[in-house]
Write a protein that binds this DNA or RNA. Structure first.
Length: 186
DNA sequence: AACATGATTCGCT
DNA sequence: GCGAATCATGTTG
């Protein structure tokens, strides 16, 4: 189970190539699947089915009816662990990303999970994509980040205190922490 | 078939 | 800092 934490940290600094953009991942959150009450995969449903399969595939879900969020399934198979991509820095395809998010300053283009998916052009059509293949969404090289910080996950009500959110210390693109109003007071 | 609930964002105070 | 928007998904009757 702690495997997903290593995978989460290992995704920081890695490049995501998606639909004409390249984004360096700067902030992630780990979800422990069947072992984690906060995970969508805690209960197996049609929506979460993809996470029970092989790792390195893309799990995309709709949030609040409007936004899309992108996750990397980390496995092992049947454990359904995944890592939510929360923020990144657009390093290529800036013009494309700007078109997708008009009026937003560059360092905010992919700040926040819904915004990252938007800037990357990721939606439900990309569900299940093999991120190690050479499709329209794939993972590329990694440049090890200098310093990594950890803290509680944003917006979750259950297990709200697990420090399973990781980000590159001091990076401008990292989104703000906000505890769920429904989470029990820490 | 109806109800409750978000792994969020944006705008206003 | 706070609250509304908005609808697919999961849960309950």
């Amino acid at each position: 189970m702690s495997d997903v934490l290593e995978r989460a940290r290992g995704l920081l600094g890695r490049v995501l190539h998606a639909h004409g953009t390249s984004i360096v991942i700067t902030e992630v959150e780990a979800y422990g699947g069947t072992q984690d009450p906060a995970s969508h995969a805690y209960t197996r449903t049609p929506r979460s089915e993809i996470m029970y399969g092989p790792p390195w595939r893309l799990y995309v879900y709709r949030s609040y009816g409007i936004h899309h969020c992108a996750n990397v399934v980390t496995g092992p198979t049947e454990q359904a662990a995944a890592v939510l991509l929360r923020a990144g820095r657009v390093v290529a395809g800036l013009d494309v990303a700007r078109d997708r998010r008009p009026g937003v300053p560059d360092h905010r283009l992919a700040s926040g999970p819904g915004n990252l998916a938007r800037a990357a052009g990721i939606d439900l059509d990309d569900l299940g994509t093999d991120l190690l293949g050479d499709g329209p969404v794939r993972l590329g090289d990694r440049e090890a980040p200098g310093s990594v910080s950890a803290g509680p996950r944003v917006g979750v009500t259950r297990e709200a205190d697990r420090p399973w959110r990781f980000w590159i210390t001091g990076d401008l693109t990292v989104s703000a922490y906000r505890r769920s109003p429904r989470a029990p007071s820490s």
